[in-house]
Design a binder for these strands. Structure first.
Lengths: 216, 216
DNA sequence: CCATCAACGCCAACAGGTTCGCAAACGCTT
DNA sequence: AAGCGTTTGCGAACCTGTTGGCGTTGATGG
């Protein structure tokens, strides 16, 4: 009754690489491409699974051999883009600039990643609102990866005496992540222009660095 | 073609109070009660509109005479509980205690409000991920009300020299709101116990007050 | 009293994500 | 070659939120 499909990338191949597995990978590529393009054209909520399946040249229900929910199609995409972006960022990060500056560059990269498609932010968040579903965990995992990078930056900053030495890295990284996501949601909801969204993120990061309390 | 129903509480009664309007209110009460109980029993996602309608003694599609989406049923409930809670809080808030303490009390009240039903946090957030729908705006409005109270507290705190005098009130209030919501989402996703959720909120608030940066 | 109109109500149907049951493809073992 | 297990594929059906079209109710105005 192995009904649930494996995760895309890993998934213990407990057997010699099969011809079927190869076929499966090819199908997944087609599916991924069809989903990507259709979601780009119409937006996630207007891209029907039936249409995606048609474009991918397969039956609708076959999608569920490769994915456990519609959201996972977008999570796939986001996971890949994100992992690329984060390795690029890690390579370009000098680890010696002032921490505030490094965080600023990080959010620039993230913004570049997410600004093309509001759906990335919106659907990832929505997926997290279905706690029992695997897509929720997948989405939280992506968020964790992002938080981890922020924590990494903060850690080296703390070592350089650039930050409060008693700082709770994860809590701080998480707060940074949250305020950025919040701004991007406002953007997706049409309350902020892209420019204003960017500015809001910058302002919130500044706020977090300085803190709310007075410095007397 | 007045197909869309009015908002629950307000909604310009542009006519003498009708017997029909009275009937409508009665129906809405029944609907509200049915929705509340069924959602409490089974959780939002397992409470079917067909079941809710049956318990309320009405046809399924009649629900849409009073509500524009399923989410609004929960938003109703949350709006009412929240407005009660906030007035209670405003009454009990002394406006002179240290700001950190007042914020702490606020989050206690909010936690008491939201800890009974993860759905409140989860579905309100989900509703915000459907930008074109009215429920999204309704949810954002509720969030804004909460942020407004936090901003109010911060404002008097700033006046009392308790906070950074150049503080951006709304940005700060929003950040506080976000970190609390984030912790509650982790709780809803089973990553945190209720106790841990509470502690996480406290820790994040402390973090926000002190700031990330060093105090050299 | 009758025409009108707004609010309310409901059956049927639709739409789209998801599941079911079964079959084909493919490799492995005997 | 035959049997077996696993992966992949698919049409039909299911579930549930939502919409359409039409009827009912009750107040109002001439």
């Amino acid at each position: 009754m192995a009904r649930a499909p494996r995760e895309p990338g890993r998934g213990a191949v407990r057997r010699r690489d099969d011809g079927r597995l190869e076929r499966g990978r090819r199908t997944r590529r087609r599916l991924r491409e069809a989903a990507r393009s259709l979601i780009n054209e119409r937006g996630f909520d207007h891209a029907t699974l039936r249409d995606i399946a048609e474009r991918a040249g397969m039956g609708t229900s076959s999608i569920y051999r490769h994915v456990r929910s519609k959201e996972e199609l977008l999570i796939w995409e986001l996971a890949e883009l994100q992992s690329e972006a984060w390795t690029r960022f890690r390579a370009s990060d000098d680890k010696v600039s002032p921490t505030r500056e490094r965080i600023g560059r990080f959010f620039e990269v993230q913004h570049q990643l997410l600004a093309s498609q509001p759906d990335f932010t919106v659907i990832a968040l929505r997926a997290a609102t279905y706690p029992p579903k695997p897509a929720a965990r997948a989405s939280l995992k992506l968020a964790d990866q992002t938080v981890a990078i922020l924590a990494e930056i903060l850690q080296s900053g703390r070592k350089n005496r650039d930050l409060d030495p008693t700082l709770d890295l994860l809590a701080a990284a998480n707060a940074l992540f949250q305020v950025a996501s919040s701004a991007r949601m406002s953007w997706a909801n049409g309350l902020l222009t892209e420019k204003a969204c960017r500015k809001s993120i910058e302002a919130s990061v500044d706020l977090l660095f300085r803190g709310i309390g007075s410095r007397s």
